[in-house]
């Protein structure tokens, strides 16, 4: 491989990696914000992502609604569903015994439920494509080729990340969420409404997942298995440090870029092991993740 081709591949890999990475980053953000406050890895996050896209498709296919109705409706549906799950199911499971493993099982249950729900509609029987709001005309950046859609995906994703950052750091609700994640007992004692804050976090996580789903849907063939992408988001979260929101974003981009570079330089079949290798490397070299805080002893 001469150096010119190598440079071209490098540019293409990074550019495509930023596109897919921005979607992983959003999904990782959604996972980490829940983990920080509820201490549950939400194994249904991928299915939440999947359902958001199918909810939109459902409104398009069966009701022929325009996109300006479909998108807010799908986002709202996902937010409401997440809040309902937190308040209706998870809170009860926690109250009944509250072992972390029970909460994890509850999220696994949710993932099966959501896949079943999509199968019920019949939409999942064949792979589907999702209409794109933005053209897929090519755009050249340096020597890398992307599409207008790709740029729209990255732009929207970065805007959402910035909004989440501002929300967490500069608003009352954001400070309450951080406080709850840091010290639930102290949070209750200063007067934070714990239930409402949990519901809010789950709703916000649903919103971010749904946005990432609607961004990527036009680029992929939709199937009820599309939620598997959450594995990459988990990888991103682990690489970044499972309790760090900026880490989730960084991890998302790293996984996206690594995947694309491996695909170009090694082989397409090596892509699937890339996130796994990234996780192993981080766990060995820096177990708390790139931006994760020092591991803390938990009081029992």
């Amino acid at each position: 491989m001469d150096s010119e081709v190598l440079f071209l591949f490098l540019q293409q890999g990074i550019a495509s990696g930023i596109v897919s990475g921005s979607v992983y980053a959003l999904l990782a953000l959604a996972i980490v914000m829940i983990f920080k406050t509820s201490e549950v890895p939400n194994f249904a996050q991928g299915e939440v992502f999947m359902v958001a896209a199918y909810a939109a498709l459902f409104l398009i296919v069966f009701y022929g609604l325009p996109m300006w109705v479909v998108i807010p409706a799908a986002l709202l549906f996902t937010v409401a569903g997440m809040m309902l799950f937190e308040a209706g199911i998870l809170r009860r499971v926690k109250k009944a015994l509250g072992e972390p493993v029970n909460l994890v099982i509850a999220t696994l249950g949710l993932s099966f439920l959501l896949r079943g729900l999509v199968r019920q509609t019949g939409l999942g029987d064949t792979p589907r494509s999702f209409p794109s709001l933005v053209s897929t005309d090519p755009v050249q950046i340096g020597q890398a080729m992307l599409t207008r859609l790709d740029l729209a995906i990255v732009g929207t994703a970065v805007a959402v990340m910035a909004a989440v950052f501002l929300l967490f750091n500069f608003t009352r609700a954001g400070r309450a969420m951080r406080a709850l994640g840091m010290n639930p007992k102290a949070a209750a004692l200063v007067g934070i409404d714990i239930r409402r804050t949990h519901a809010f976090v789950w709703g916000l996580s649903g919103l971010v997942s749904a946005i990432s789903a609607l961004l990527i849907a036009p680029k992929i063939l939709m199937t009820p298995e599309m939620g598997h992408v959450a594995i990459l988001a988990f990888a991103a979260a682990i690489v970044g440090g499972f309790n760090s929101l900026p880490g989730a974003v960084l991890g998302g981009f790293i996984i996206g870029i690594a995947e694309n570079l491996v695909g170009l330089f090694v082989s397409a079949s090596a892509i699937v092991v890339t996130p796994f290798l990234a996780i192993m490397a981080v766990l060995v070299l820096r177990p708390q993740g790139l931006l994760g805080g020092r591991p803390q002893m938990r009081k029992v």
Binding site: R175, R178, A179, M182, N183, K185, A186, A188, L189, V190, G191, I192, D193, I194, R195, G293, K299
Partner: peptide, 28 residues
């Protein structure tokens, strides 16, 4: 009442141990 409502009613607790928000500033 829930815990936050008790705070609103006018009861605040200083818990035992060092239950500060460790990663936040004194100001926060």
């Amino acid at each position: 009442r829930a815990s936050h409502e008790v705070v609103r009613a006018g009861i605040a607790q200083v818990p035992e141990g060092r239950e500060v928000f460790r990663e936040m500033s004194v100001r926060e």
